[in-house]
Design a protein around this nucleic acid. Structure first.
Lengths: 217, 217
DNA sequence: CGTCAATTTGACCGGTTGGTCAAATTGCAT
DNA sequence: ATGCAATTTGACCAACCGGTCAAATTGACG
């Protein structure tokens, strides 16, 4: 019998009562997620070590494993916990809004994510690069449905002549590619652009690009 | 004293004579590069193991290390050996050609690379994702110079009114982002697109996108 | 204060990793 | 066929990996 209940086994002792998190648990779990994001996003899953994450979080390795059962569990918790944040901008694409402005706003929201959450972007990128061993289910599930719905909307706009004729799915993919690139390939972009802030000039450039691509003439 | 000269120490015994490669060396080195490409591109540098590469190449691990001094050496040899292939399409951007058609042709060459060499694309992507520990010198050297030259050309075209006014560097970055995405995020693209061949519909879509972006009206 | 649960730690474990080495085997030129 | 260099291998190693465990320490609450 286990005499030391680990926090990650919380559901085991839940019973009829709500499982409340200790202040310490809240603090340390947050520190671990922050540290894991830092390490996983730069080293990839394979290159990351529990020692590195524990060190970054200011904990000992056994202490880390008191809060998460395994390296995989931390990685999965990070990814699934961030998924909603990553999908929100697309969900916000509004059928009632002006088509061109809606798509431009979506692009800007995605570019803001790249600017403000580059590590999260690289974490996702690394996962997809390796063939999405953890996220595959989400890709063929929620993501596929969401993209299907929104690309239908885009193509409706196109059919109504309110934007140029485009492939809805390809349009969404283009927005992903063009915005994520500035986070995922950060060092390359900066090497090529020199001193200028990549995101400022990217915002101007992408604004013009999508306006030209989408506007009816 | 070393009594068994390893092939990778070739320069040590070169002296005044040209160093010729054995048939066996040529075959095994090629097999190792092929295997390493397979493993590194999927597992990343950190996740890859010498055993996995050796197994994929059909060699024993010590035999592998007879041809390369270390894991890092294989990785670096792969990257630097592939760099020229990756830069060639941009080098081929011709000042004498028609501006829009030249840029479209560059985009198509890059998309073809993504289609035909997705593992190489993912290898580069993984390296850049981790902050380019190996390639940083090339990024701030050859790449920066090449991009500088070609973006000047693009902006000359723009100033002459032969294409729409664009930021040369940002235009090149957009071409990279939009084409590499189909190789690097392959599984996501396929999850979203379903059965249709991503590259066929991408070619059509990107052709229209860049035509609209670049053409003067 | 006491006490019990929550938290933290050092010591440890079996497996894997990158890499070495001496010896065995093979290929090749004479 | 023989002799030497090129190639291959099994056995091995120290370091590191993810993870465990019992014991020690700390925090919360009456």
């Amino acid at each position: 019998m286990r005499r030391v209940p680990h926090p990650w086994a919380a559901h085991r002792r839940a019973g009829a009562f709500a499982v409340t998190e200790t202040r310490i648990q809240t603090r340390n779990r947050a520190a671990i997620r922050e540290a894991a994001l830092e390490v996983f996003s730069r080293q990839g899953f394979g290159g990351a070590t529990l020692d590195a994450i524990a060190g970054e979080a200011g904990l000992s390795k056994p202490n880390l494993l008191y809060y998460y059962p395994s390296k995989e569990a931390i990685y999965e918790d990070l990814l699934t916990g961030l998924l909603a944040t990553w999908l929100d901008p697309l969900i916000a694409l509004d059928p009632a809004g002006d088509p061109v402005e809606e798509l431009l706003a979506y692009m800007r929201r995605k570019l803001d994510l790249s600017r403000q959450m580059p590590r999260e972007s690289r974490l996702f990128a690394g996962e997809i690069l390796r063939g999405a061993p953890v996220m595959m289910g989400h890709l063929t599930g929620e993501l596929q449905r969401l993209v299907s719905e929104k690309s239908d909307l885009i193509e409706t706009w196109a059919a109504e002549g309110r934007i140029a004729p485009v492939d809805g799915r390809q349009t969404i993919i283009s927005i992903w590619a063009l915005t994520q690139h500035y986070a995922d390939f950060d060092v390359q972009v900066r090497a090529v652009l020199g001193d200028t802030d990549p995101f400022d000039s990217a915002a101007t450039h992408l604004d013009a690009l999508f306006r030209r691509m989408l506007s009816v003439r």
